[in-house]
């Protein structure tokens, strides 16, 4: 059986809020190392990969592999009841038809209990190879969100170009062109504002802004975001959750004419 108690319960709500507009039904795959999720959007353009490691929970117990087939719209309805500082506990049998979710207030004077019906979801799992990316950019997640949102107002796609001069986000739309360039930036006192660009070779790729803006719904999870690029492979956008738990988005590049 699964029993997992999360003290940073808002993490669960933020993860679901971040992915529910991209995927609707998905399996939460539970085993002794934690709770994982992998799902593609309907058009098979983007892939979501999440891992909440066992050490993010206290206690965490999962004796055997359990797939929790969850409709995220339904889970969102249950998570509406979650309040800041609540402890959340997930419980399920070995072959569950429902997921038991308990919210406890930090003062333990309120316990809310929900049973969410589960579904059988036949999902294809993709093997994601370890990739040495040509460019890795770590930057404030709010900045990335602002750039994507601003450029989406002008165009449906963005070209991301990483060179020794920095990383350039540019777009061309009916009303004109726009571009934002970021350079390496170090702020010793406010490290969350740093822009770190690691480059092994120049990269230029074009992506749909609709998906990037969607990924930015994960911004409340972390004040930093990591963007990894290599020519001709999907973009990786990563938000670290707690410790080494993560939420990753992969986006297939646009095909050049």
């Amino acid at each position: 059986m699964l029993e997992a108690r999360l003290s940073q319960s808002m993490v669960l709500k933020k993860v679901v809020d971040a992915i529910k507009d991209l995927v609707q039904d998905c399996n939460f795959d539970c085993n002794d190392s934690g709770i994982a999720l992998q799902a593609m959007d309907n058009s098979h353009v983007a892939l979501v990969s999440m891992l909440l490691k066992a050490e993010s929970f206290e206690p965490y117990r999962c004796d055997r592999n359990i797939a929790l087939g969850v409709n995220l719209v339904s889970l969102t309805k249950v998570l509406r009841a979650l309040q800041n500082d609540d402890l959340v506990t997930l419980k399920a049998d070995d072959a569950p038809d429902s997921l038991n979710i308990t919210f406890e207030s930090s003062t333990a004077d309120r316990i809310s209990e929900y049973d969410l019906k589960l579904m059988d979801i036949d999902q294809e799992h993709l093997g994601i190879p370890d990739t040495e990316y040509a460019a890795t950019v770590t930057m404030p997640s709010t900045e990335f969100k602002r750039i994507c949102t601003d450029l989406q107002a002008m165009s449906e796609s963005v070209t991301i170009e990483a060179t020794k001069d920095g990383i350039k986000f540019s777009c061309a739309g009916d009303i004109g062109n726009g571009a934002v360039t970021l350079r390496n930036y170090q702020n010793v006192e406010k490290e969350h504002l740093n822009v770190d660009i690691e480059l092994t070779e120049p990269v230029s790729l074009t992506f749909s802004l609709k998906y990037l803006v969607n990924f930015c719904k994960a911004q409340p999870l972390s004040d930093r975001v990591k963007i990894c690029l290599s020519n001709e492979v999907p973009l990786l956008v990563e938000y670290l959750i707690t410790g080494t738990s993560y939420l990753r988005f992969y986006l297939a590049p646009k095909v050049r004419d």
């Binding site: 593609m40 058009s43 098979h44 353009v45 983007a46 892939l47 294809e124 799992h125 993709l126 093997g127 994601i128 190879p129 749909s208 492979v233 999907p234 992969y250 986006l251 297939a252 590049p253 646009k254 095909v255 050049r256 004419d257």
Partner: peptide
Amino acid sequence: EAGQGNIMSFFSKK
């Protein structure tokens, strides 16, 4: 969408 790559063509099925 025209010109949009498919994620399944980059990652192998398990």
